[in-house]
């Protein structure tokens, strides 16, 4: 791999990689194509004409249970989970740079939260609410259930970031008279901004797509993944694919926007961040 020409191994591995990508995206592309089935089309090929019939069908209320409502709830829940995940993770990340009692315990809890099976969290929170006499709802019990999944990712990302963080920038700012808050706002935050966007991406998408943790905690109103799951058992038309395609497109938009923002921040930093020797 060090010399100029590609070896046979390279082409074999490249072929393997290509197959893996096909495996990864092939099925999703298949249902994307099938969601454009004509009105008489079925769940499999061949295509029976091309139309937007099933997308229109999706928004016609009678076809799908409560698609609009579940989408709104999922979006709202995703946004709340995102905000809380970012805030809690950044704050905890800052704390972990100093010594405090219980740091190891909290870290262990975060790892435990990742490895405890989702259905267990779901059952536990459902039972707890039941025992305490609270009514489970997407904005209370499901919110907590989602946070147990997103916060560990947020904390681990922050720990990874601060493991590689050079404190000399802060020292410099402090020497120039910056307060703690100014130091955080104008020095630390811009440096960790790309990772913060990453945490936001995790927070939103993991919540938006979460199924198992919502199952017992959503209460009387479904979130979108629950609604989709319900559809798989009683809907046998391509409207299911139309919904799948739309949600996936939406996920891709969110991911694309986040990655775009990260790239933009990186580029801006590369342009503005280093003016050494430029006489600025």
């Amino acid at each position: 791999m060090q010399d100029g020409r590609r070896s046979l191994g390279y082409y074999l591995l490249a072929g393997f990689f290509g197959l893996y990508v096909l495996f990864l995206y092939g099925p999703t592309l298949t249902i994307a194509v099938l969601s454009f089935q004509g009105p008489d089309g079925g769940l499999t090929f061949p295509m029976n004409g091309m139309s937007l019939h099933w997308f229109r069908n999706l928004f016609a209320r009678q076809a799908v249970g409560d698609f609009g409502g579940s989408l709104r709830r999922s979006l709202a829940l995703g946004a709340i989970v995102m905000g809380l995940t970012v805030t809690f993770s950044v704050a905890a990340g800052l704390a972990f740079r100093r010594r405090f009692r219980g740091a190891t315990l909290l870290f262990t809890l975060a790892v435990a939260s990742l490895i405890v099976p989702s259905i267990l969290v779901s059952l536990g929170i459902g039972l707890l609410f039941n025992l305490l006499g609270f009514e489970p709802a997407w904005y209370s019990s499901a919110l907590g259930a989602h946070l147990t999944w997103t916060l560990p990712f947020g904390l681990l990302i922050m720990l990874a970031v601060f493991n590689r963080f050079n404190p000399f920038y802060e020292e410099a700012a402090r020497d120039l008279g910056a307060t703690s808050w100014q130091c955080f706002r104008h020095v630390v935050l811009p440096i960790i901004a790309p990772s913060v966007i990453g945490i936001a991406l995790f927070g939103f998408t993991l919540s938006y797509d979460e199924f198992a943790r919502t199952l017992m905690t959503a209460g009387s109103f479904n979130t979108l993944p629950l609604e989709i799951y319900g559809m798989t058992t009683n809907i046998t038309t391509p409207v299911l694919y139309a919904l799948g395609t739309l949600t996936t497109v939406f996920s891709f938009l969110v991911i694309g926007t986040s990655l775009g923002a990260v790239l933009l921040l990186r580029r801006r930093r590369a342009r503005l961040g280093n003016d050494a020797g430029k006489g600025v």
């Binding site: 993770s89 800052l94 704390a95 100093r98 740091a103 809890l109 059952l123 707890l128």
Partner: peptide, 22 residues
Amino acid sequence: PYLQVAPMALTFALFLVLPILA
């Protein structure tokens, strides 16, 4: 640091530890 970790610690206590105890 305690104030900074409080929200996360509280979330884990309420939605991970207590449910498992339940």
